Amino acid sequence: MARQRQYDMDYKIQSIKLSNEIGLTKAARELGISPSTLNGWIKASKEGRINLGFGTQTPSSAMSLAQELEMLRKQVKDQNKQIQRLKEENTFLEEASAFFAASRLKSTRTKD
């Protein structure tokens, strides 16, 4: 099984900028990375998960307000799901802790 290579954020940003200048396929070939990897980074930058810095968005590459609103709503929905899951886990852990504390107290009483 091939080991997945890790790239730092600066490398990704420079790769995206290069692909904007010379094209995705040519940039991927020059960098020695898969075009699908580079395309994933480009998509992430369009979704706002990779910040290319000031002055890099053009009207054609920027998200529309509707797209941005949709993305933000999805993020809020995902975060709410995660919050609910964490609350449930905390409740379970509190109950388990109380159970074990009670059983420990019970076992020390029977030893005396």
Rank of each mutant, 00 (worst) to 15 (best):
residue 1 M to T: 11
residue 1 M to N: 07
residue 1 M to S: 12
residue 2 A to D: 07
residue 4 Q to L: 13
residue 5 R to E: 14
residue 5 R to T: 12
residue 5 R to W: 08
residue 5 R to P: 06
residue 7 Y to H: 14
residue 8 D to T: 06
residue 9 M to D: 13
residue 10 D to Q: 09
residue 10 D to I: 00
residue 14 Q to I: 03
residue 15 S to D: 03
residue 16 I to T: 00
residue 19 S to P: 03
residue 20 N to S: 08
residue 21 E to C: 02
residue 23 G to D: 04
residue 23 G to K: 06
residue 23 G to W: 03
residue 26 K to C: 03
residue 28 A to F: 04
residue 29 R to W: 04
residue 29 R to L: 08
residue 29 R to C: 05
residue 29 R to Y: 06
residue 30 E to V: 01
residue 31 L to V: 03
residue 32 G to P: 02
residue 32 G to M: 04
residue 32 G to S: 06
residue 33 I to V: 15
residue 33 I to G: 02
residue 33 I to S: 00
residue 33 I to P: 01
residue 35 P to I: 01
residue 36 S to K: 09
residue 37 T to L: 15
residue 38 L to G: 02
residue 40 G to I: 00
residue 40 G to H: 04
residue 41 W to Y: 07
residue 41 W to G: 01
residue 43 K to P: 04
residue 44 A to S: 11
residue 44 A to P: 02
residue 44 A to V: 00
residue 46 K to P: 05
residue 46 K to H: 14
residue 47 E to Y: 11
residue 49 R to T: 09
residue 49 R to M: 13
residue 50 I to P: 04
residue 50 I to S: 03
residue 50 I to D: 03
residue 52 L to W: 07
residue 55 G to Q: 01
residue 57 Q to S: 15
residue 58 T to Q: 04
residue 59 P to N: 04
residue 59 P to I: 05
residue 60 S to Q: 15
residue 61 S to N: 09
residue 61 S to C: 06
residue 66 A to H: 11
residue 66 A to M: 08
residue 68 E to Y: 15
residue 69 L to G: 11
residue 71 M to I: 14
residue 71 M to K: 14
residue 72 L to E: 13
residue 75 Q to I: 10
residue 75 Q to M: 11
residue 79 Q to C: 10
residue 79 Q to R: 14
residue 80 N to Y: 06
residue 81 K to Y: 09
residue 82 Q to M: 13
residue 82 Q to L: 14
residue 83 I to Q: 07
residue 83 I to P: 05
residue 84 Q to D: 11
residue 85 R to Y: 11
residue 85 R to D: 07
residue 85 R to S: 10
residue 86 L to A: 05
residue 88 E to N: 13
residue 88 E to Q: 15
residue 89 E to R: 12
residue 94 E to L: 07
residue 95 E to K: 14
residue 95 E to N: 13
residue 95 E to D: 12
residue 95 E to V: 06
residue 97 S to T: 05
residue 99 F to G: 02
residue 100 F to G: 00
residue 100 F to C: 06
residue 101 A to P: 01
residue 102 A to E: 08
residue 102 A to I: 01
residue 103 S to W: 08
residue 104 R to G: 08
residue 105 L to R: 12
residue 108 T to Y: 09
residue 108 T to M: 14
residue 108 T to D: 10
residue 109 R to E: 11
residue 110 T to V: 13
residue 110 T to D: 14
residue 111 K to N: 12
residue 111 K to T: 14
